[in-house]
């Protein structure tokens, strides 16, 4: 077993260039270690990503005003970041609901995405917020770029966002349905809304019909039933034959109402 611990970006690039055929990245390990439990490693190399400072930075990019979140930032770190809380609220809300305190202190946003679980909580948020992935050599996520709060798409409005999820229980739970909503408040009305449904099916997806319900409405006056109804239809269409469909179609009303309430309560 080769265990590689790059401590700089260059060392990471060298490690990637020389990597074994069967290798795995290790960051928070909150997904790989439970999977490996009780079994031997099935890889020849582990590349640790937790000692590369560039992967742990979080902050505004030099020119664009876009916001960078390093792949190895922990959920706790993302949830506590004042800029994320203010401008990318959905992501902060998602990160503060992931697992337990211990998992949030260890699990990383990059790992959450790279693990490829349909239930990954950060994914719908990153999609709704228009995040872009920056890659290292096309195999390793360096981090995520979120459009700056003053980005052209926001225009003269204010970007607001919220996240809600439904799991098997109310706490320390894996999502069965997650919802991320991002909108631009312009003249007191929602515009340019994006709604992403996560966990319900194999991949998160945009639900334009639900977004259309918000557009033009004032916070607090959204037709909540129509919003939930649009989501229910979308879920039914995405997993028509799954035994869990009837429940998810019906239960989406819970997170749908929750996410609207959180969006309406948005405060700068």
């Amino acid at each position: 077993m080769i265990f590689t611990v790059p401590k700089t970006l260059e060392e990471l690039q060298t490690a990637l260039a020389n990597r074994s055929e069967r290798f795995v990245f290790a960051a928070g390990c909150t997904d790989i270690l439970p999977k490996k439990l009780g079994k031997p490693w099935e890889v020849d190399e582990i590349i640790d990503l937790t000692h590369v400072p560039e992967l742990q930075t979080i902050g505004t990019g030099p020119q664009t005003g876009d916001y960078f979140i390093g792949a190895c930032c922990t959920h706790a770190q993302v949830a506590a970041d004042p800029e994320v809380r203010r401008h990318y609220t959905a992501l902060a809300q998602a990160c503060e609901q992931i697992g337990s305190v211990q998992i949030r202190n260890r699990g990383t946003i990059g790992g959450n995405v790279a693990n490829g679980s349909p239930a990954a909580d950060t994914l719908p948020c990153l999609m709704a917020l228009g995040a872009e992935i920056e890659w290292i050599d096309g195999v390793c996520i360096k981090g995520f770029w979120l459009p700056g709060a003053q980005a052209p798409s926001a225009g003269s409005g204010t970007v607001v966002s919220a996240f809600a999820k439904l799991g098997d229980r109310d706490i320390v739970t894996i999502a069965r349905i997650s919802l991320a909503v991002r909108s631009v408040l312009r003249g007191g009305r929602y515009t340019n809304t994006a709604v992403v449904v996560g966990a319900a099916s194999l991949q998160p997806f945009f639900c334009d019909e639900a977004a259309a319900v918000l557009d033009g409405s004032q916070p607090g006056e959204v037709d909540r039933e129509a919003f939930a109804g649009a989501l229910a239809k979308a879920i039914e269409a995405s997993i028509p034959n799954r035994p869990t469909m009837p429940y998810k179609r019906s239960a989406v009303r819970g997170p749908a109402f929750d996410v609207l309430e959180r969006l309406a309560n948005f405060e700068h």
Partner: peptide
């Protein structure tokens, strides 16, 4: 009982 989600507490 949360009638929207079926969660009980």
């Amino acid at each position: 009982v949360d009638t929207y989600t079926g969660h009980c507490r």
